[in-house]
Amino acid sequence: MSEFNIKKPVVPLPDMDPEPQIPEDELFFTEEELEQIERYKEKYPTNRSAVMPALWMAQQKFGFLPPEVMQLVADALDLPYAHVFGAATFYTQYYKEKKGTYVLDVCCSFSCQACGSYDVLDYLEEKLGIHAGETTEDGRFTIQEVECLGSCGTAPMLQVTNGPYVHNLTEEKLDQLIEDLRNDKMPPFTSVTLPQDEDEMEGNRRSDVEHTDTYQTPPETKRWI
């Protein structure tokens, strides 16, 4: 189960007197980034609406969203800091603390649970020597248990650092993934071929993707929770 455990439910207080984690001389948006923020603002009638895209951009740039970055976003959008903080903590994809370079979000919801996602989690935990919710000592990997990622037919599956999906996970696939990531090779975008396309079009309909996968019979499930 993920960090908050209903059996021992503890909600920690964020550090209310935080030391800045981004060096002061790096804590700014470039001209281009500020222009991008202006473009975000133009998409909506209010500045406040631009908070989500701006947080995404900041996370892209700084890797995570420590308080000083949220403040930076607030200043760029001329919003109260608390509004930015409140929004950032509502959404799970915003990293409020530093994560590993690669975050492995293993879906353990509903269909994935029924198709062996906890076996995937076990395997990863064993392999990386950490529990879900933790980061390896070298700062490379974080494992997280997440909710349905909208790819239930290719369960078990995971997402790497809010980016590409990896489908139909097996131990071999996980080994390969970890090795690739150790070499900083992100998994490519993979288009999963519709079963009806397989039948009627002999494969994936997209000619612009290099990597495809198909729906497969899910594996037996050893651990269910």
């Binding site: 269909s111 029924a114 198709c115 239930c152 037919g153 290719t154 369960a155 519709l194 079963p195 009806q196 729906y215 497969q216 019979t217 899910p218």
Partner: peptide, 11 residues
């Protein structure tokens, strides 16, 4: 369709 079927997927 997902779960314990032979050929899950979107149809």
């Amino acid at each position: 369709i997902s779960g314990h079927v032979n050929r899950p997927g979107c149809y």
